[in-house]
Write a protein that binds this DNA or RNA. Structure first.
Lengths: 301, 301
DNA sequence: GCATTCCTGTACACTCCATATACAATCTCT
DNA sequence: AGAGATTGTATATGGAGTGTACAGGAATGC
C-alpha cells in the first residue's frame, strides 16, 4: 500500500499543504495516518477522496457542503474500496454489452442504473459507458448487427444524457458556448458529454447537434456572441471542403472556434492553419482546455 | 437532494440576494431551509418556484400578484380557468418561438414548462410543440438562421422527449416494436413521439433512430421478433434505391413493416406495392393505425 | 550538518451571508 | 393629482466560511 506525505498530496491534488491541514482540522475530511513522529501519511484512497471534493467544488459546492455530501455518500454505502472497484467495472461493462446484444432495453436500464447508484457519474462515464461505446463502435463492421447495436446503444445513451442535461440548472447569466458537430459527423455523444461538463461549470450551453452546415453558424454566433464555438469531429475526415468551410467560418464569427475529437487529434496542424484551436480527442480534456482558453482570453482583455 | 446557497440561487435565477431575502420577508414565498448557522439553503423545487414567479412577472404580473397566483395554484392543484385556455395556446407558441429566436435556453425552458404544469402532455404536444416545430421547419430556408433554429429547437425537444421516454417504464414483457428512420431521414421527433405513445400503450420500444441502413434491420428483427417495424420518412423522397431496399427488407423480416410521415402520405401506392403499410403523416394517427393492425393480426392468428 | 519538509497554533484577510432600517422610484386608487 | 401601498435597492453592523501567513520547533534526508 502506498502512502504520500502532505507535500506530494499537494502536488497530486493542487491543494496547498496549509489548506489540507485546515481541512483536516476543520472538517476532519481526510484524517490520514501519522508516522510515529506525527507526519501525515495519505493513502491513495484519501487522495481520491480529495479529488472527489475538487470535482464537487468545481460544480459549485462549497467545501463544507462537499464534505457533507461525501459523508452522506459514505453513509449511504456508496463509497468504494479500491479493490472492489477494479473488480466491478468489467462486470458492469459485460452486463451492458449483453443487454445491447439482446436489444433488451429493460436489462440495459438496470445495467446502466446500478453503477450510477454507487459511483459518481463522471467515474461511470469513464469506466463503463465510454469503454462500452468504444467497443461497440469498433465492432460495427465485423458483425451483421453491428450498426444496429451501435444505434440502439447510442440512442439509449443520448436519452439518458439528455435527461441529465435537462437536470443541469439553466443559468440566465454566464458565458454562452455553442456546441455542434462538424458536417457529416453523426456521433454526438462526446459532444453532449462535453456540454454536460460545460453546463456544470456555469456555461450557458447552446447545443445544435449534428448536420448543421458550418455556414449557418454565423447568424447564431452574431446573435448570441458566445464565449466560444466548440465543434466535434470523430468520423469525419479532413478534406478541402472542410478546410474551406472552417477557413470561411473563423473570421465570420466573433468568438474563438474549437475542434475536438479524433479530427483534432489527427490534424492539429491544418486546423491551426485555418485559425481553429484543436483541443484533443477526449471530451473531458477537450472541454477543460476550452474553458481554460476562454478564461485566459477573458483576463487578457 | 441538492441545496443552493443564496448567491448561487441569485446566479441561477437572476434575482439579487437582497431581493430574494426581501421576498422571503415580505411574501414568505420561498422559505428555504437554513443551516445550523442560519444560512439559507434553497432546494431545487424552490428555484423552480422562483423561475415560475419570473415567468409570471414577464407576462405582466406584479410580484405580489404572482405570489397570490402561485398560492392559488398550489391551493387547488394548479388548475386554470377553462376559458383562458383557448386564448393561451398562441401565447405559448409565441413565447417558444421568441425563445428559439434568441437561442435562449432558459426562456425556452420556462416557455416549455409552463403549459406542461397546467395541461397534459398530449395536449401540449399537439397544440404547442408540433405547431411550433412545423413553423420552424417551414421557415428553414427563408431565414439565414433557419437551420440553426431548427437544430436548436429539435435538440432541445429531443432531450425533453428523451427524458419522458426514460420515465416511461420499460416493460420486459409485451410486444416489441422497432422504430427507426428511413435512410437519409434526420427528423426524429415524430418517431420519438410515436415511440412515446407506443411505450405508454405497453409496447417494448426498440428505438434505433436515424441513419440505419435498412439492410441492417434484418438481424435485429430476427433476434427480437418484434410485433412490427415502424419506419419514418418526412424529408426523404421515393426513389429506386428506397424501393429496392424496402422490397428486400419486407420478406427478410418476420414482422410487418410500417412507414409513416410525409412519405407515407405522398406515396401510399408504391409503398403498398413493396409490401409496406403506409400509416399516414401524423405520428399519433400513425401509431394508432399500427397498434390496431398489430392487434388484428394477433386475433387473426 | 544543513536545507528541506512538516508539525501545531494563532491570527488575519477577504468573501459571503444575515438582520434591520431607510429610501427612492413606481403603481394604484380615490 | 396626491396619498398610500408596492417594491427594488442601499447602508450599517456583525457573524460565518475559508484560504493563507507567520512563528517556533521537530523530523527527514542527502
Amino acid at each position: 500500500m502506498e502512502y504520500f506525505p502532505i507535500g506530494r498530496v499537494a502536488e497530486l491534488t493542487g491543494i496547498s499543504p496549509v489548506t489540507l491541514r485546515a481541512w483536516e482540522r476543520r472538517y476532519g475530511l481526510p484524517v490520514p495516518h501519522r508516522t510515529a513522529s506525527g507526519h501525515r501519511l495519505f493513502s491513495m484512497a484519501e487522495v481520491e477522496q480529495l479529488r472527489r471534493v475538487l470535482t464537487l467544488m468545481e460544480s459549485g459546492y462549497s467545501i463544507s457542503r462537499a464534505v457533507e455530501r461525501i459523508r452522506a455518500e459514505e453513509e449511504h454505502g456508496g463509497r468504494f474500496d479500491e479493490d472492489e472497484q477494479e473488480y466491478k467495472w468489467p462486470t458492469y461493462r459485460q452486463r451492458l454489452l449483453e443487454a445491447v446484444d439482446n436489444f433488451d432495453t429493460t436489462a440495459l436500464d438496470s445495467a446502466y442504473n446500478e453503477p450510477l447508484t454507487l459511483f459518481p457519474v463522471d467515474l461511470v462515464i469513464d469506466e463503463v459507458l465510454l469503454p462500452v461505446l468504444e467497443q461497440i463502435g469498433s465492432e460495427w463492421e465485423q458483425r451483421d448487427d453491428g450498426i444496429a447495436r451501435e444505434h440502439f446503444f447510442s440512442n439509449y445513451l443520448r436519452n439518458k444524457i439528455g435527461t441529465r442535461f435537462n437536470h443541469e440548472v439553466q443559468r440566465r447569466h454566464g458565458p454562452a458556448l455553442i456546441l455542434a458537430c462538424l458536417p457529416g459527423e453523426s456521433h454526438e455523444l462526446g459532444l453532449m458529454l462535453a456540454g454536460l461538463v460545460a453546463a456544470a461549470r456555469g456555461y450557458r450551453v447552446l447545443y445544435l447537434g449534428s448536420n448543421l452546415p458550418l455556414s449557418k453558424l454565423q447568424p447564431v454566433a452574431t446573435r448570441t456572441t458566445p464565449a466560444g464555438i466548440a465543434l466535434s469531429g470523430t468520423t469525419v475526415e479532413w478534406d478541402a471542403k472542410l478546410e474551406k468551410d472552417l477557413r470561411d467560418l473563423v473570421p465570420s464569427v466573433p468568438s474563438p472556434v474549437y475542434v475536438g475529437g479524433d479530427l483534432a487529434e489527427n490534424y492539429p496542424g491544418p486546423l491551426r492553419a485555418v485559425g481553429v484551436f484543436p483541443v484533443g480527442r477526449d471530451f473531458r480534456e477537450g472541454i477543460e482546455r476550452i474553458i481554460k482558453d476562454i478564461r485566459q482570453r477573458r483576463t487578457a482583455e
